[in-house]
């Protein structure tokens, strides 16, 4: 198991953001994390990568207890993530942004090595012709890819992807899905938060559904799509519920 989340809860003051979340993730899998808006998905990411310590529970990463460690400690152990709301280092060039990931993440490369890795990753994500631009000048789709590039450049064992498909058009989504599959093929384990149902259904080996901070279902995409609890949770959003039932890869491809 690369990651084991055991009975993790998180509350902010009176607000219960996560309650008793438990799952374990074998290596080389892709785990989808879905749920309505405000279900606590990003909070779960934040707890896993150390942005917030959990209020209760334990998190094991590669059989090591990382509960309560800081994000930089966890990053150096080989976990990387992207942000739903992109956080580019605006005044640095695209290459330098990626070099930060390579220099300070898991492999902790020197500047020279980092530059080589950065160029490789930029090539892989199709950003190589932007390498010398400053990050602020990228459009949103490019900034999302930049987030991924920075995360990948650290050569992590585990990659947390927070809505990397949101806001992309169908062809961009297809390209990004392809990229995600390639990353997995390189031996990286992935957890992805996603609203674009057909994509997450297609790509994931297993899926966890959160609702109001609770884990209401876990299983293969097939099982999830027909789980009555899940459909109920999504009923607030009938379109999404419908997409879910249509299952693997049909219907509208746009996320929100």
């Amino acid at each position: 198991m690369i990651l084991e989340v055991q009975n993790v809860s998180k509350n902010f003051g009176g607000l219960q953001a996560l309650l008793n979340i438990s799952f374990s993730l074998p290596e080389h899998q892709i785990l989808g994390l879905i749920g309505p808006n405000g279900a606590g998905k990003t909070t779960l990411f934040n707890v896993i990568n150390g942005v917030f310590p959990p209020s209760r529970g334990t998190i094991l990463f590669r059989d090591e207890d990382i509960t309560g460690l800081k994000p930089y400690d966890i990053a150096r152990k080989g976990m990387a993530r992207t942000h739903q709301i992109v956080k580019p280092l605006n005044e640095l060039t695209v290459r330098e942004n990626v070099m930060v990931g390579a220099c300070f993440g898991h492999k902790a490369l020197g500047l020279h090595q980092a530059r080589l890795v950065a160029d490789e990753v930029l090539e892989f994500l199709g950003l190589n012709n932007r390498a010398d631009q400053i990050a602020a000048s990228l459009n949103i789709a490019q900034k999302k890819r930049l987030e991924m590039a920075r995360a990948l450049a650290s050569q992590p064992y585990l990659l947390l992807l927070d809505e990397v498909l949101a806001g992309l058009n169908p062809s961009e989504i297809a390209a990004m899905v392809e990229t995600i599959l390639q990353i997995r093929q390189q031996g990286v384990t992935i957890i992805m938060i996603e609203h674009v149902m057909h994509a997450v259904m297609n790509v994931s080996d297993r899926i966890i559904v959160l609702d109001y901070g609770q884990q209401i279902a876990e299983g293969t995409p097939e099982e999830i799509a027909h789980n009555p609890k899940v459909i109920e949770a999504y009923l607030g959003d009938p379109k999404l519920a419908q997409r879910l039932q249509e299952g693997n890869g049909y219907g509208d491809t746009r996320g929100e």
Binding site: P71, H83, P88, F104, R150
Partner: peptide, 21 residues
């Protein structure tokens, strides 16, 4: 490399932390 980390902090301290600075 140290300087690159500092500039990352200047540009976005939270992002820098998550990247391992």
């Amino acid at each position: 490399k140290f300087g690159l980390g500092l500039i990352a902090i200047r540009e976005n301290e939270d992002a820098a932390e998550v990247m391992g600075v």
